[in-house]
Structures are given as C-alpha cells and as structure tokens.
C-alpha cells in the first residue's frame, strides 16, 4: 500500500516509540553480535526479547541506551536519533542491566535519588517513596547496598531505572534471582507501568514470563532477529496440540495405522502412552480417524488428554530450526534446552 512519507512519519510518531534501523554490531574482537536488526516497538506495549545465551539481546539494548556503539545502522527513540539528539532520547529511557552492578556503601535511598538527579529530574521524594514501596524496598531505604540480598539488589536496579519516570523501560532479565512471590509482584508492577503508558522491553530466559506478560515477542538468535510476532498470534499459529493416549497394554513400536501420518505418532512412558501431535488450527485434526483406526487395530485405551504447546516449545523449535539452517558450525545455540 502506498503511503505518503509525511503520513508514514506521522504514523511512526504515533505508534512507534523505538525504531531500530539496520543495526549491526561487530565487537573489537571481530565477533559479530548483531547483523542488520530492524525492529519497531509500539508505544505502550510490553515487548519480550527472547534468545539463547549470547544471541545479542544485551548488545541490542546497550546500543539503544548508548552504552555500546553500533557499527552501523540508526536508532530513534520517540523520533530522536540517539546520536544526534542523544539528550532528548536518553531522557526517555530507563535501563535495568542484566549484571547486578551496584555501589556498595551508598544507601538504597541515596542510590535511587542519585539516579533521578543524573537523568536531569528535580528531586521528588514522594515519587521515590512510591517507587521504593512498590518494589518492597521502602523498609530498606536506609540500608547500605552491600547489606542487601541479590534479589533486593535486582529490585534496587529496577527502582533506580524507575526513579526518573522513563517512557521506555528496558528490563534485561529483571527477575533473574528474584523469588516467585516477588517475581509475581514485579510482573504486576510492569503491567501497572504499561497501564500508565510506559513501553517495556524485557529480555528473559523464563519463557513463562514472556507468555505471561508480553504483548509481542521477538526471537533473536546469533545476532539475527528471526521472528517478531504478537504473542497471541504466535501461540495461535505455531501452537501445536498433543493428544496423549494411555494404553491398556504397552506397545514396543509405533503402530502403522491407515489414514494416520506415522511421524505424527510417538511412544512415551515405555510404550504405555501413544502421543499424537496435531495442528489445532487445521480444520481437520485427524483425531477421529486416529481413534477409529486404533479401535480397528484392537489397541485399547485407558484414558486420554490433550496438551497445548507453550511459548517455550515454540521458542526451542524456532531456535533449533535457525541453528539447523546455518549448519556451517555447531554452535551453542543448538545446545539450548
């Protein structure tokens, strides 16, 4: 569809808070961490960036935040080029880094107040108190940072990033090392932020986190963005279902059944279970034929249930696929479990 450039630009300003255009990064070591990344982030969404260790997630975030220099390409935050218009761009960004890097002898309150000042905001004790309370850190406000636990330090980093009321928040593995209860609280906090209009980009290795929170998901593998999709669409499109049949008598080989694709069937639990994988989007699931064929073959069934594949299954499938495509060298991407 043809669009006028001005209209396109207007549309971008309205919808996209972050525009990443052909960004590549080759480190001084010669390692190419990112190859030609194009990505637009919509205003107000929660975007989850997934990928195995070393995929380039942190590198991408670091480039947007001005911590790493891109080798090529351009980045705009709310229309401000991060190089030419760096001050305006950075004022909008909050970053929670992956590494637990904190001062040691500063107090919690001191550290958070410092962050707000650094980002050019006048002091606002009420806002700081709100942030610390929402992260269950208010009681610790006068504690020195060395005395905090790992999970508390992680939350302190979140508090520092929120201290200056960013419009675009990067959370690089925000819940690593945070216990289950607090993780749920942090998710709720992120949703609250989204409700106030903050755009959130998070990376995580907990797929349930992306499944739980994200509006859209991007999957990055070996420096390439291999997929960007609405989470719902993704799970809908790629979601496979499995029908598990508990057998009366264990089988030793997968039975050949007429009208049923043999690679759709696998045995599990020492042959006590027969698993049928099907695409639930397909109108014709083949389930009826399967059951009919089983009864004709005299294979009796005790019980049955269906399961739906999670984002994790999708993710592992995709990354393994992209690793298989570039089989030039066996890399650690394939080792992801």
């Amino acid at each position: 569809m043809f669009r006028y450039p001005a209209a396109a630009r207007y549309a971008e300003r309205m919808h996209d808070i972050l525009t990443i255009d052909g960004v590549s990064k080759t480190y001084a070591s010669g390692l190419t961490a990112l190859s030609h990344i194009d990505l637009n982030i919509r205003r107000g969404e929660i975007f989850a960036l997934l990928g195995p260790n070393g995929a380039g997630k942190t590198t991408l975030i670091s480039i947007v935040c001005g911590i790493v220099n891109a080798s090529s390409g351009s980045v705009r935050v709310d229309g401000h080029d991060i190089r030419r218009d760096w001050r305006a761009a950075r004022e909008l960004i909050g970053l929670v880094p992956q590494e637990l890097t904190t001062d040691a002898f500063e107090t919690v309150l001191g550290a958070v107040t410092f962050s707000r000042g650094l980002f050019g905001k006048p002091a606002d004790p009420c806002h700081i108190e709100r942030v610390l309370r929402s992260l269950s850190l208010w009681d610790k406000r006068n504690s020195r940072i060395v005395t905090l636990s790992g999970g508390m330090k992680r939350r302190l980093l979140v508090a520092k990033a929120l201290s200056h009321e960013p419009q675009l928040l990067f959370l690089d593995e925000p819940t690593a090392g945070v216990d289950v209860t607090l993780r749920r609280e942090m998710w709720a906090l992120v949703r609250d932020l989204r409700d106030t209009g903050v755009t959130v980009i998070l990376t995580t290795h907990y797929i349930e986190e992306a499944e739980e929170m994200a509006d859209r998901v991007g999957i990055i593998s070996k420096g390439r963005l291999i997929l960007v999709e609405d989470k719902a669409v993704l799970m809908h499109q790629l979601g496979r279902k499995q029908l598990t049949l508990e057998l009366q008598q264990a089988l030793t080989t997968v039975p050949a059944l007429p009208g049923v694709a043999p690679d759709a069937l696998t045995l599990a639990k020492d042959g006590e279970q027969l698993v049928y994988t099907y695409d639930r989007e397909r109108e014709h699931t083949g389930m009826a034929e399967l059951l009919l064929a089983l009864s004709e073959a005299g294979i009796a069934i005790k019980d049955l249930h269906t399961t739906q594949s999670s984002l994790e299954d999708i993710f592992v499938g995709l990354v393994a696929g992209s690793a298989a495509e570039s089989t030039a060298a066996p890399t650690d991407a394939g080792a992801l479990t």
Binding site: C65, I67, R87, P97, D103, S115, F119, G120
Partner: peptide
C-alpha cells in the same frame, strides 16, 4: 571497574 558506569553512559549527561 564495578560496572556502575552503565548508568552514567546511559544518562542524558554531557
């Protein structure tokens, strides 16, 4: 050395 410089580098500070 400690890595806390990330904050300074990402801040709108000349």
């Amino acid at each position: 050395f400690s890595g806390t410089i990330y904050e300074l580098l990402s801040a709108p500070v000349s």
